[in-house]
Design a protein around this nucleic acid. Structure first.
Lengths: 211, 211
DNA sequence: GCTGGTATCACATCATTGCGGTATTGTGCA
DNA sequence: TGCACAATACCGCAATGATGTGATACCAGC
């Protein structure tokens, strides 16, 4: 049973190429293709595809907006972005919007079939440069220098609860210890983090990802 | 000119296999290999490899700790993690630590050569399931629904100061308004964010990137 | 001119937190 | 065996925060 695919791509030559390329395989069935996303919601509802190939740069609604719309009605359909851009902004916006893969157009002929297989198998096909971008974006989040404040496990646990908005009382109740014990731990945490209030501690904990 | 590689892998069979596999190609030169990471810093300094293959689960210092150490002395060397784990924790820890790629051992024979090529070309080789994990982690980071709590500019300003660890008094002093005014603003902020304390507000503000 | 939204200030009360102590217990290490 | 340390618990006081109630003032839009 072939996999149903729909395509959104404004360049009619490329659109035709994609259809032909996929038709050759026999495994994939391009049930529809469109030059824009004006009625993307209806199209997806009507065709219920398993895979969507989505160009980013299109007149009217661009591919990223379209992905957001699709995700409001179908969290499961696999979406692969096709694009000439490999700059951060577009990649991350697309990923955040809910795309499952991101393929540069220059690799389409080589990699498209493989990429479709990969999203269907639960992967996230990306061009190498895209993958590197995603990784370095993750790494930026946390400084490599390990900010080690020598918190004990118990202290980390309490800091975690504190960071979630719990009061001392709630923490005491949660951990089945007395309020005073919580206080003692908190005092030590403040000492170790070099802060003098809850907010500073929570702010530090969250921004340095100690929790 | 062949690419210099060193390997850290405690399983001696696998270590030998890796050496042999890479030797066959002629493009890669395994200059050294070790069963543990006790002297990882010295080894890297001594051999100056372009690529490091790093097992995660090793006696003594594990692969993730080793990556952190390596990154303190060499931000450029390409590190590919080799592992049987494909759970979130290990993947993310390794990525945060500074790894450039992450290869499940079951794919080693198929993908290792290709993966090494890919890191050298500036990519980030990952098994499909790993890539999917990384992407869904990114998507979790920023909720798609835009969290608009209709805070006024003044309220945002105060929330920001609060999140930086300022007390009400300090905020009042900073903005040249009375303490009571700060209180009033804070009350409104709590209402709008549906929270009932500083910590909850700050926690929400930081984690939802309102500040 | 009225209304809604925003920003400002004030007073009162009770709860929570910050910080200075001190003390007991269990655990791991030299 | 003794030491260091984590985790637990308690006290007391001053400072800070949470909550309620009420008031004034400015500005934009109707």
């Amino acid at each position: 049973m072939p996999v149903n695919i729909i395509i959104f791509e404004d360049n009619s030559n490329l659109r035709e190429s994609l259809v032909n390329l996929l038709a050759l395989t026999g495994d994939y069935n391009v049930v529809a293709s469109f030059p824009d996303c004006t009625t993307v919601i209806q199209q997806v509802k009507e065709w219920k595809p398993e895979v969507i190939l989505m160009d980013i740069d299109m007149p009217g609604i661009n591919g990223i907006e379209a992905v957001k719309k699709i995700r409001t009605i179908d969290p499961a359909v696999q979406i692969i972005m096709l694009t000439v851009f490999d700059d951060n902004t577009h990649v991350f916006e697309a990923m955040y919007a809910g795309a499952n893969g991101y393929l540069l157009k220059k690799y389409v002929s080589d990699k498209l079939i493989h990429s479709i297989r990969e999203v269907l198998d639960g992967g996230a096909p990306m061009s190498p440069s895209i993958a590197r971008m995603v990784i370095s974006n993750m790494q930026k989040g946390i400084p490599i220098a390990d900010n080690d404040y020598q918190l004990t496990n118990r202290e980390k646990e309490i800091l975690q609860l504190l960071s979630k908005g719990n009061s001392f009382k709630m923490i005491a109740a949660d951990l089945c210890i007395s309020l005073d014990t919580v206080r003692t731990h908190i005092k030590r945490i403040y000492d170790k983090l070099h802060v003098r209030s809850q907010i500073e501690a929570v702010s530090k904990a969250i921004s340095e990802k100690l929790v």
